[in-house]
Amino acid sequence: MENQVMKEVLNEKNFAALDQVIEANKDRKGALMPILHEAQNIFGALPIEVQTVISEKLDISLAEIYGVVTFYSQFSLVPKGEFVIGLCLGTACYVKGAQNILDRLETELGIKVGETSKDGKFTLEATRCLGCCGLAPVMVINEKVYGRLEPGQITGILKQYK
């Protein structure tokens, strides 16, 4: 795990919490999914250090766990940034110019969709329809919604989070 954030997260306290989660779930059927969910809550991501522990304790191969983690989009191998930007690329937003907004976000943040900025601040994600097409093009930063976006607004919005 290249970034500093992850190093800090991989601490004794969190691994102890993971042990508890595994202990509480390991005898139930289909224990892997709930454990992965909890583990992601604890560590913010599911890096190899976390997956190997789960693999050993559940006696499930690392490959199988990795297969599950990469199948579901809610699991992440790298920690998400402090602020997760979800830009809608649903049909309505797309027609209303979401691609231009995306291009602008990528340039401003210096990362591509699915990546997290080096300082651990921002993660950029493209989402499906957010269900508020009247506001197209729309994006959410953590819980806050920004609608009827113009590329020119992006710099100003991001500034509030930097």
Binding site: I60, S61, A63, Y66
Partner: peptide
């Protein structure tokens, strides 16, 4: 690998068109 040898090095990873048979990570 998984059922005969019971080692499990290989698995379907990722999803849809990007699915690949590969070791973890």
């Amino acid at each position: 690998c998984k059922n005969v040898q019971e080692i499990g090095i290989l698995e379907f990873t990722n999803r849809g068109f990007n699915t690949e048979v590969s070791p973890a990570f």
